Simulated assay, not measured.
Amino acid sequence: MTKPDITYTVQVLSQFMHKPKESHMLVAIRVIRYIKNAPGLGLFMSSTTSHQLFSYCDSDWVACPQSRKSVTGYMIKFGSSLISWKSKKQETISRSSTEAEFRSMASTVAELSWLTGMFKELGVSIVQPIDLHYDSKVVIQITTNPIFHE
């Protein structure tokens, strides 16, 4: 679970632990081979860091073939060190890719709020504002134009 690129795959596989089929076993073996062949792809925690949080989020609309739910994910870095990430199916079905992107951003902002509070309790000051990076042109247009807000 320390490799963000396989987190979603491992999560889906774990849903079939009690009654696995041959196809699930083949995918599990493929994941194990990937981990075995990439031993240097661990997490790097830098000893020198800035007090800046960087966040990145994305969404894949209607990505799950079983439920037609979107898959969202984010990653948050403290300086150059990855400290938080998540990849999951959204609880509800989004009506559009824009809605899925907004839900992804909302999850990321919630995590950023929690991390900021935790750092404050630990006595670490975080540089404000915190950048949120995403790749949706539609979301950028909606957020910059107040006419589109409903």
Rank of each mutant, 00 (worst) to 15 (best):
Lys19Met: 08
Phe44Val: 13
Ile29Arg: 10
Glu22Ser: 02
Met17Lys: 09
Leu41Trp: 02
Leu13Thr: 09
Ser47Lys: 14
Ser47Gln: 15
Tyr34His: 13
Thr49Gly: 00
Ser14Arg: 00
Thr49Pro: 08
Leu26Asn: 02
Ile29Ala: 01
Ser46Gly: 09
Ala28Leu: 14
Arg30Gly: 09
Leu41Thr: 12
Tyr34Ser: 11
Ser23Leu: 00
Met25Ile: 03
Ile29Lys: 14
Met25Gly: 06
His24Val: 03
His24Pro: 09
Ala38Val: 00
Arg33Ile: 08
Met17Ile: 08
Thr49His: 14
Ile32Ser: 05
Arg30Phe: 01
Val27Gly: 01
Pro20Lys: 08
Thr49Cys: 13
Leu26Ser: 07
Phe16Arg: 05
His18Arg: 10
Lys19Asp: 09
Phe44Ser: 11
Gly40Asn: 14
Lys21Leu: 14
Met17Ser: 15
His24Asn: 03
Arg33Pro: 00
Ser23Asp: 06
Gln15Ser: 00
Thr49Glu: 13
Leu41Cys: 05
Ile29Gly: 05
Lys21Gln: 12
His18Gly: 01
His18Ser: 13
Ala28Asn: 03
Ala28Ser: 08
Arg30Tyr: 07
His18Pro: 02
Leu26Phe: 07
Val31Leu: 03
Ile32Gly: 01
Ser47His: 09
Leu13Pro: 01
His24Ile: 05
Pro39Met: 03
Lys19Ile: 08
Val27Arg: 00
Lys36Pro: 10
Ser23Arg: 03
Ile35Cys: 06
Leu41Ile: 11
Gln15Leu: 06
Ala38Lys: 13
Leu43Thr: 11
Phe44Arg: 10
Met25Gln: 06
Asn37Met: 12
Ser14Tyr: 10
His24Thr: 06
Met17Arg: 10
Thr48His: 13
Met25Ala: 04
Lys19Cys: 03
Gly40Asp: 14
Ile29Asn: 11
Leu43Tyr: 05
Thr49Phe: 14
Lys36Asp: 12
